[in-house]
Design a protein around this nucleic acid. Structure first.
Length: 423
RNA sequence: GGAGAGGUGGCUGAGCGGUUUAAAGCGGUGGAUUGCUAAUCCAUUGUACUCCGAUUAGGGGUACCGCGGGUUCAAAUCCCGCCCUCUCCGCCA
């Protein structure tokens, strides 16, 4: 959520970018105008009622008749009650509108309508050269018995992966490797949060109201399955003035649940786009002055995962048309998958500035003792299924086995090669 | 899931329709006093929205006693619903 005062004062300069990102600025400004006018009106009447009621109290104490004043206030009360309904409606309308206004991109974000305008910041490593035709992760996984998508479809539905044997251990090993890296070397505190949250939390980080169709919702309790650990971890401090020193770095492994309602038919083969996936997430709460430096170091923390795994990847600075609703700036990290012959997005590292903090009411006390909104950031460090795709496809060998990168051998009980069963 | 108790400012804790503008204490801040520390004394004390003022200083108003409704001229106080905490019982990995 943006500051309504800023929207009022800078409406002319902000209108273009907000509308380009699908927001309706004038609707918000009108609703704000209406809301404030009603508020002024009803507050003046309430002031009058408070004063007269007080007077009635005194007169009664003195034994005087107050029926005339009471009748007058009864009538005023009717009017107030009607106006209160109007105020409530106006505020609901205003809230609904301002919650749908996207964040304003930072000045370093390239302008553009879609992913074609994204800027490649850097490329790490080189694509591995093969002297045989590389298999896709689906072929590899089936042959080595690492996952079983057919049976998972029968038990749940398409897009819910099931890992088994070495595949399951690889999944678990990668999660532990990444958590250890962020905790022991990057200074994050590990958190193991609920995987299901309430609507206030979803609104706090910006999933609601816009993304309701993309999430799984429970019946009976009005709870939601988290689409990312960002939601529970960022909401850790919702409606608080943080007393601990900033910056605060948190990391968490969680499964992530996404309906992918608008993506039917795209990338549906194998592990490329699934409804449930594992991810290690990093979240930062920082002082506003430092948030862009913190974004750079967050990005490096995510890149470190891929570097240690020896993967070829590139970093994109997403353009104004491609960054998510709540982000002011976002880097994507894409890893190279030789079997797909494609770049796969495995991480998004975003600075939300105070956009989430405003919604979730997360503040801190600055040096003057004043409460201010923190800046929040988060980044995947990193998402699992596509990482597994890249690993399997990158480290496959001519004999059909998979070499395990050195960094995760300790997390695989010393196993250095995944071979077909029975060999 | 059932029964009971309870949720008041940064904290402790009173108030249970109008002398409360939420008492009192603790804590915090500023000041006075004092070889230092401690003690004592004086003053001050939250959040959000909104209006006036010049986007200053400052001033006015509204709301906030777990949350949301309701009754009343007037609600921390009465009524209804919900949430949370504690104790006990039940169930349970």
């Amino acid at each position: 959520m943006l500051d309504i005062k800023r929207l009022r004062e800078e409406s002319d300069s902000l209108r273009g970018i907000i509308e380009a990102r699908g927001g309706q600025l004038d609707g918000v400004l009108d609703a704000d105008q209406k809301r404030r006018q009603l508020l002024s009106e009803v507050e003046a009447l309430k002031g009058e009622r408070n004063a007269v009621s007080k007077e009635i109290g005194k007169l009664k104490k003195a034994g005087e008749d107050t029926e005339a004043q009471q009748a007058e206030m009864r009538a005023l009360g009717q009017k107030i009650s009607g106006l209160d309904d109007d105020v409530r409606a106006a505020e609901a309308d205003f809230n609904d509108r301002i919650l749908r206004i996207p964040n304003i991109p930072h000045s370093s974000v390239p302008l553009g309508a879609d992913e074609a305008a994204n800027e490649v910041v850097r490329v790490h490593g080189e694509a591995r050269a093969f002297d045989f035709k590389p298999e896709t992760h689906i072929e590899i996984g089936e042959r080595l018995g690492l996952f079983d998508l057919a049976r998972a479809t029968r038990m749940t539905g398409a897009g819910f992966p099931l890992f088994i044997g070495s595949g399951a251990r690889l999944e678990r090993g990668l999660i532990n490797f990444m958590l250890d890296l962020h905790v022991k070397e990057h200074g994050y505190t590990e958190m193991s949060p609920p995987f299901v949250v309430n609507s206030d939390s979803m609104t706090g980080t910006g999933q609601l109201p816009k993304m309701a169709e993309d999430m799984y919702r429970t019946t009976g309790d009005d709870l939601w399955l988290i689409p990312t650990a960002e939601v529970p971890v960022t909401n850790y401090y919702r409606e608080e003035v943080i007393e601990a020193d900033l910056p605060i770095y948190l990391t968490a492994y969680t499964p992530c649940f996404r309906r992918e309602a608008g993506a039917a038919g795209r990338d549906t083969r194998g592990l490329l786009r699934v409804h449930q996936f594992d991810k290690v997430e990093m979240v930062k709460f920082v002082e506003p002055e430092t948030s862009y430096d913190e974004l750079e170091s967050l990005l490096l923390n995510a890149e470190d995962v891929l570097q240690r795994l020896g993967l070829h990847y590139r970093v994109l600075n997403l353009c104004s048309g491609d960054i998510s609703f709540a982000a002011a700036k976002c880097y994507d990290i894409e890893v190279w998958a030789p079997g797909q012959d494609a770049w796969l997005e495995v991480s998004s590292c975003s600075n939300f500035e105070d956009f989430q903090a405003r919604r979730a009411k997360i503040r801190y006390r600055n040096r003057d003792g004043k409460t201010r909104f923190v800046h929040t950031l988060n980044g995947s460090g990193v998402a699992l299924p596509r990482l597994v795709v890249a690993l399997l496809e990158t480290y496959q060998r001519a004999d059909g086995s998979i070499e395990i990168p050195e960094a995760i051998v300790p997390y695989m009980d010393g196993v250095t090669v995944l071979s077909p069963a029975g060999e």
